[in-house]
Design a binder for these strands. Structure first.
Length: 111
DNA sequence: GAGGTGACTGCGA
DNA sequence: CTCGCAGCCACCT
C-alpha cells in the first residue's frame, strides 16, 4: 500500500484478466471501491505502459467496449491487433459481443 | 501549496 | 437516437 498505490491495485486486477476477456475502467474502479474514479484506472494504465509495460491494458476498455486508449497504448493498432489475437472481434475500434467477453473482477474475484 | 488534467460514467435535453 | 454537461479522485506541473 504505502502512499496511495491505487495504480498498483489496478495493475494487479488487470494482470488477473484471463485470456480472451476484457473489462471496463468502471468495473475495476468499482472493485477497488472507488466507482467514481474510473478515470484514475485509465490514468494508471497510462502509467503502467511506461513503468510496468507488462500490463494487458488492451484488455481494458471503456463501458461501451470501445478502445478509447488505443492511441495511448502505443503505436498503430497494437491494441486492436492484440484483442483480435485473443479471439475478440474489433470493429471500428469497438469490441463486438463485448458482453460475452466482459470480465467483472467484482464478480470473478469476489468469490 | 494550488491549479489543471484525464485511456470514464451517468443523466438530461 | 444523438449530443452535451457535470461529477469524480489521484497524479502531474
Amino acid at each position: 500500500m504505502q502512499t496511495s498505490s491505487f495504480y498498483q491495485n489496478v495493475y494487479d486486477v488487470v494482470k488477473l484478466i484471463p485470456f480472451g476477456r476484457a473489462t471496463s475502467y468502471g468495473a475495476i474502479a468499482a472493485y477497488l471501491g472507488s466507482k467514481g474514479s474510473a478515470r484514475m484506472v485509465g490514468y494508471a494504465m497510462n502509467n503502467s505502459i511506461k513503468t510496468e509495460a507488462g500490463i494487458p491494458a488492451h484488455r481494458v476498455v471503456n463501458r461501451n467496449g470501445l478502445l478509447t486508449g488505443k492511441f495511448h497504448f502505443g503505436i498503430g493498432d497494437e491494441m486492436k491487433n492484440r484483442l483480435e489475437n485473443e479471439g475478440l472481434v474489433i470493429i471500428d475500434n469497438q469490441i463486438q459481443n463485448f458482453n460475452a467477453v466482459f470480465w467483472n473482477p467484482a464478480t470473478e474475484l469476489a468469490l
